[in-house]
Simulated scan of single mutants.
Amino acid sequence: MASEFMQEAGRKAIADGPKAMRKFIEVDQHNIRMDDYRIAILRLLPDAGPGLKEGINKVLTHGNTIEKLRQFYDVTQHELRLDDNNKVEISRLIAGGGTGVKEAGKKALDGTAADRAEFLKTGRHRAQAQDDLVELARIDEGWDGPILSEAISKLMDGSPTPSALRHFLEVTQYELRDQDNRVAIAQIIDGAGPELLKAGRAALAGTPADRTEFLKTGLQEARAKDQAAKDKDKPAPEKDGKDGDTKGNATGGTTNTTGNTAVTAQGNNGAPLATTGAGDHTTLIAGGAGTALIAGAGLLLAARMRRAGAEG
């Protein structure tokens, strides 16, 4: 287990006789061992993080006993390396997290190594759950589809775990948005013109992205084609042969015929919603969960109270 330098010094002591061997055992071996630890510790520098580098400099400056050097090499260096890794991971979470994660993460970075370890073990999940509650409230307030909104209410009423909240936001909500969009498209194409009917059926048979695109742009494009076909088949207005005015227009103005119109209500992703032109039925658009985290779970209650007041 000895270094080459230790082995060489030991062999030389043996060759030099009893006095040299006694000096080697009582003095030289300890000095050599300390030098070996210092060399081994120096070799940790190239891939060391900030905390470990600081610890290396400190122990090389003040580590004047074999016990201190051995403790650092065998134990402390691993603790410092882990804490450096924890700092990097916490910084990554802060960069991509919501308000709760950012605040808790910054507090952990300013704390002790134990604080950082605890944050990564449990604190991050509690903070993320608070952010998820805010995000669910935002979605519930901005989405008009009944399927997703009812699922959010059911989730919140069941005291969900942090993992359940994460799964809902990352997976379930998109499935339910698509279900709401399917219902909306089916209502839109009921009794629609040929182009709108064709485009709507294609969207229903396609992917969730196809349905999103139909509600964003395809709906208006298909409706415009149907309207253009109607305008083309409509007979030209008769002239009275006198002053070129359209018959029946006593004021001398022109007849104005409009097709279906689009409303400018916004979905939760900022895309415009549209009407079918029959009964002014507002469609839904599937969007991302977003990251606008601005309050607590009380937003969900406020959204429900506003909705209940509007229905009343």
Rank of each mutant, 00 (worst) to 15 (best):
R211N: 12
T217R: 13
D210S: 01
K230T: 00
L204C: 14
R182T: 10
L169H: 08
T161V: 00
E213F: 02
L196T: 15
D180H: 11
Q187A: 15
Q187F: 15
A203D: 05
D226M: 00
R201S: 14
G191M: 10
G206W: 04
A203P: 02
Q173Y: 06
G145T: 03
R177Q: 13
R201N: 11
G191L: 06
I147P: 05
L219Q: 05
I185H: 13
R166C: 12
K232V: 02
R166H: 15
F168I: 12
L196M: 12
L155G: 02
P235S: 07
K198R: 14
A222N: 04
D178W: 01
N181W: 12
A202G: 00
R211Q: 13
D231P: 00
K232M: 02
L215C: 09
P146F: 01
Q187C: 13
R166L: 11
T207Y: 01
K234L: 04
A224N: 04
Q187G: 15
G191R: 10
E221C: 05
L215M: 06
S163D: 14
A205V: 04
R166K: 13
A228N: 04
N181I: 13
E175S: 10
R177A: 10
L155M: 00
T212W: 07
I147H: 11
G158K: 01
D233V: 00
R177N: 07
D210E: 04
P162W: 08
M156A: 04
M156Q: 03
P160V: 01
Q227Y: 10
